[in-house]
Nucleic acid binder design. Structure first.
Lengths: 340, 340
DNA sequence: TTGTATGCGTTATCAA
DNA sequence: TTGATAACGCATACAA
């Protein structure tokens, strides 16, 4: 066994001041490189800082400055999100890039239990962050109330229905779903179905609405199968149900890439070729899209851009700027590959 | 446009004290629920807290207590990690679960640029965290020096070669590789090759060593193909090379599941059946393992357990306990599916 | 059981 | 250009 070295007491500005033979005020000025400090003093102080190994104490600084120069990044349900949802990584990266450039530290907080919820709420309340980005908040999300009560600069990625007027960034699921469905129709299919998932979330409901829009009068409710989750297994089950109900189906819009991947399996098991017998399109442009055979035609979620936009939104509020009341919607290009 | 509501000044203990007609000391006692406070005072203070909307200021508390009740979780290279490496999510979850139970806030910090490195170093130095978990540190990783200089309680997940005596948790790549190779040998294959990847990391080198161990005298250097990265495309390229050099190959150990998935594609293109003509095994038990056809036989990385163990390690140091000098190695069960 | 006073490490204001 | 000194909000030892 080894004993961890004792954590030695940290040097303070005071120590630097006595070492350099100046006052604490002057040291502070050097540390924050402010003007009005003589070259002599500066070099002496820099040497002293090096010698005593001084690093500023943020707790003290935050206390007096009333800010932390940090922004929280809150993510729920990491089970599914971190493990399955490939978007979360891109969002996180986009946010970090923007915040980093503005010299803010992004601290991401995972909520995985009620206990986490309470602790994170305390963390936010405690002044550890100047603002917050919240990913995949849900209906009645406790974080919404926390943010409102604290009047904390915030940006949501996606918009739970009860978000009221809090700022958010997202995509237009309905329009995107409509676009890819139209593209699928354009390949000449005549019996097009949908595996709709997560209808309790607005993303799921909107994608179904977009599908319906695109089909117009040709819409046949018998050709949509509803499954609970955006998962591979639900996709496979949904496809099987569709096939049983409508053997002549020749096109499928799956509510997500994972769902599409599952559908592909069911199709393969049923001896149908893709895209020969049936064309399949997904949604997300996630890692699934290139891991299937054939690669998926799908709609691209601008994950990085969402994170970046959310970060800009928070930074804007921090600068005291006004924010668009309607939320920010990003473009979602269709990416056409081989599955349809 | 809407203007964000002004952030109203936060109530302090002082406000609560005057509201409740007691001293600040008593309020403090109630907040931290310490003994020696009368029921009358307590109820009055609780009412006052509610009324003025008091929440403790962590900056002030940290300053006086000299701790933050937070542990950092540092992750590098999120490009590949967050987007591709499925382990990171599990590690993060495991760490969060343990820290949460101990009432510590986990704050994860992403390092994606030199600028990030500097800022995170400052963050750590600033007393924002009491300890730190570092994932996938690399050779000459700046964080190693930061942690040493600060004498900050830390645990690494994986061990870069120059880690010296800092605590770490990991798996025994060599033993695991040996185990799965032996299992593959046990299926009766006679010409077994390996697609070795990332030989500049010790995980990559150790997996190759384990493969060599298992084959013993039957080891044929001509049957190992070296590729740079743990990726799908390198896996496919590696398999093609192997096939060209040794058409009679009937078994392959791929250095990771992603590599194995790529190999599967190359095999399919070459008209070889799996596991009929050639048996394939991977490493990681990642999301890839169930997204391939057939599903991969592989070795399970205990991602959640690694995170949990790292967190325990840091908490132990925080409690002043000794830590094992050798690092902690977790079990890696072989999970046998359909690809071999 | 409660109140008072001091210090935690900074920044910021004001004289010097 | 520099040096005192007063906050910042809280915990805590000590006095009452």
């Amino acid at each position: 066994m080894v004993t961890v070295p004792a954590r030695r007491k940290r040097a303070t500005i005071h120590d630097v001041a006595v070492e350099a033979g100046v006052s604490r005020g002057t040291v502070s000025r050097v540390v924050n490189d402010e003007p009005y400090v003589s070259a002599a003093a500066r070099t002496a102080i820099e040497a002293a800082i090096e010698k005593v190994g001084y690093v500023p104490n943020n707790a003290a600084r935050n206390l007096v400055m009333q800010r932390s120069q940090a922004v929280g990044f809150i993510v729920h349900e990491p089970h599914s999100l971190f493990l399955d949802d490939p978007n979360i990584g891109g969002i996180l990266l986009g946010a970090n890039t923007v915040l980093s450039r503005a010299d803010y530290q992004m601290v991401s907080l995972v909520i995985d239990s009620q206990r986490d919820t309470d602790r994170v709420a305390r963390y936010l309340s405690g002044g550890f962050v100047d603002g917050v980005i919240i990913v995949s908040a849900r209906h009645e999300d406790p974080m919404i109330r926390v943010v409102e009560k604290l009047a904390l600069p915030a940006a949501f990625v996606g918009h739970p229905p009860d978000l009221r007027r809090l700022p958010f960034v997202g995509i237009d699921n309905r329009r995107s779903a409509r676009a890819i469905t139209e593209r699928l129709i354009g390949t000449g299919r005549s019996r097009i179905g949908m595996i709709a998932a997560a209808l309790d979330r607005d993303s799921g409901a909107d994608r179904l609405a977009g599908f319906t829009d695109a089909l117009g009068s040709r819409f046949d409710p018998n050709l949509v199968e509803r499954v609970p989750l955006y998962t591979y297994s639900d996709g496979a089950a949904g496809m099987r149900a569709l096939l049983a109900r409508e053997p002549g189906i020749d096109g499928v819009f799956a509510a997500s890439d994972a769902v599409a991947a599952g559908a592909l399996e069911a199709l393969r098991d049923a001896g149908r070729s893709v895209p020969g017998d049936v064309g399949v399109v997904g949604f997300d442009d996630s890692t699934w899209a290139l891991r299937t055979q054939p690669h998926l035609s799908t709609v691209h979620q601008p994950a990085f851009g969402l994170g970046a936009a959310a970060a800009e939104c928070v930074l804007g509020q921090l600068r005291g700027e006004e924010q668009p009341a309607e939320g920010i919607l990003l473009e979602t290009p269709v990416v056409w590959r081989d599955s349809a």
